[in-house]
Design a protein around this nucleic acid. Structure first.
Lengths: 192, 192
DNA sequence: GTCTATACGCCGATAGAC
DNA sequence: GTCTATCGGCGTATAGAC
């Protein structure tokens, strides 16, 4: 891609993405039609199609900043020597992304449509394999693998649940991390 | 409802539901159109409409046997005197439903469309409140509530995950229940 | 009471004019 | 780069045959 058009654009992808995120957050992904996004951004439906070939492309582009952060999380975790420290780094990193109100991920992670879409993304599956190996080792036991799967599946539904509402950001992070540690039978790391 | 029609039907809801479940399980709920279900059952799309006014009605009717079982689970749990025993009864009951291959719930629980649909059902929300009180008491601490939310959200994604594939049904139940106990900080009950 | 024929308005997506 | 026009398919809905 990126045939590098030297000219600046009039509406630009940024405005389309901003409009899309606004509507996705308010109404959900599936409920928001391309017509809605186009109207909100001030173009026609077909005008959208110049920038994005499919609706999925729009959704994924809204998420790009968050998704790009995932490899950074695992890279940081690789530096730690103990398993407990790596677990905290990876789980904490994911939780941070999930709790960041300004990221598309936080807004959309719980969206049913997105979960389906992400599981089809090859790059996402590869990252997940890396993260699993990093946390559980090359030959993990079934118990730990199940715990990790439950944490990831549970996080998306939990991070925006009303039970977290009375807590501040630091407490939320702490509570969710504690859940992850319990599921993985991991101790609180002593280093760092 | 139940205006008790004395005559028997030619195709009957049972066959429609069987066809729907078959396609839902194979292709997912959203991918399956009413036209697909009608063709599979041997009627026209409008023929479906005589029995069900909306697609959601079909989905909910496929689930009815499973959903009807939930109150039974909480009723059984009320008989126990210790919290640990109640936790095991409720969590175990939900896990059993989620793992039963012959129930619509097991097939559809992980389906994104369904999770959205169920959260809109008033009866479902009421049951969830009951179950929460039963397990955590009338004034639960935040930690336990978060653990329970993560378990429920995580179960639907975990119960059909490939990591469970090598296990038999008894081991699957055991592993998932162990996850729930850890999240709720509940001991294995000594009674029963 | 059970089904078919037909249609409505909206969807995501495409072709081609300006 | 953005438009109008159009496509096939969707969920939903009514009229009326049997």
């Amino acid at each position: 891609m990126e045939t590098a058009p030297p000219r600046r654009r009039r509406v630009g992808r940024e405005q389309l993405l901003a409009a899309a995120l606004r509507l996705f957050a308010r109404d959900g992904i599936q409920t928001t039609s391309l017509q809605d996004i186009a109207t909100e951004a001030g173009v026609t439906k077909a005008g959208l199609y110049y920038h994005y070939k499919t609706k999925d492309e729009i959704v994924l582009d809204v998420l790009r900043p968050s998704l790009d952060e995932l490899p950074t999380v695992t890279r940081r975790a690789e530096a730690h020597r103990t398993r407990a420290a790596r677990v905290d780094e990876v789980l904490g990193g994911i939780i941070d992304i999930a709790l960041d109100e300004n990221s598309g991920f936080a807004v959309l992670m719980k969206d049913p449509y997105l979960q389906q879409l992400l599981s089809q993304q090859e790059s996402m599956r590869r990252w997940w394999d890396d993260a699993t190996t990093l946390i559980l080792g090359p030959a993990p036991d079934v118990e730990a693998r199940i715990g990790l799967v439950m944490f990831i599946n549970g996080l998306s539904g939990t991070s925006r649940d009303p039970v977290l509402a009375p807590l501040d950001d630091r407490s939320r992070r702490q509570q969710l991390l504690a859940c992850g540690r319990r599921l993985l039978r991991a101790e609180q790391p002593t280093e760092a």
